[in-house]
């Protein structure tokens, strides 16, 4: 499967991102639990892109590491960025209406998590989940 680019501009787009990530996870043969973890993380991150980033996009693709397959999802926005990353990754911290588990929670659900952000410069979060 080639990389799929999806816009995140509204609630319906969050659902579409979830569905695209699910399809990629099934095709990469992730276990049901791993699929669920990845889709849940994607849901959190897509919502962050929408709520805090003012909208943006997601790129979903299958990745390979030798015999292992996985799914990579990138969430990017051109929003205000995150000033204190450490704080944003702390459980219970929220600047919006969530439970404050978005970023930190999403990080626990995936195998690889990188975040690239600067105040005024938008945010890009990249996650990867590998098949066991």
């Amino acid at each position: 499967m080639s990389a799929q680019e999806l816009a995140i501009a509204g609630d319906a787009d969050v659902v579409r991102v979830r569905q695209a990530v699910r399809a990629a996870a099934v095709s990469a043969k992730l276990s049901l639990v791993d699929q669920t973890k990845l889709v849940t993380a994607a849901s959190e991150l897509a919502r962050n892109t929408l709520t805090y980033g003012g909208g943006g996009g997601a790129v979903v693709e299958e990745v390979f590491n030798g015999l292992r397959k996985g799914v990579k999802a990138i969430f990017h926005d051109k929003g205000p960025g995150i000033a204190d990353l450490q704080l944003a990754l702390t459980d219970g911290y929220t600047s919006g209406s969530g439970m404050g588990l978005g970023l930190g929670g999403a990080r626990r659900l995936v195998d690889e998590f990188t975040i690239d952000t600067a105040p005024g410069d938008g945010t890009t979060v990249t996650v990867v989940k590998w098949a066991r």
Binding site: L32, V33, Q35, T36, K37, T40, D91, M99, L101, G104, G105, R108, L109
Partner: peptide, 14 residues
Amino acid sequence: MRPAVAITLVELGL
């Protein structure tokens, strides 16, 4: 609640 959903929620911290 499905098992996979429950496991994920616990991991998420909920």
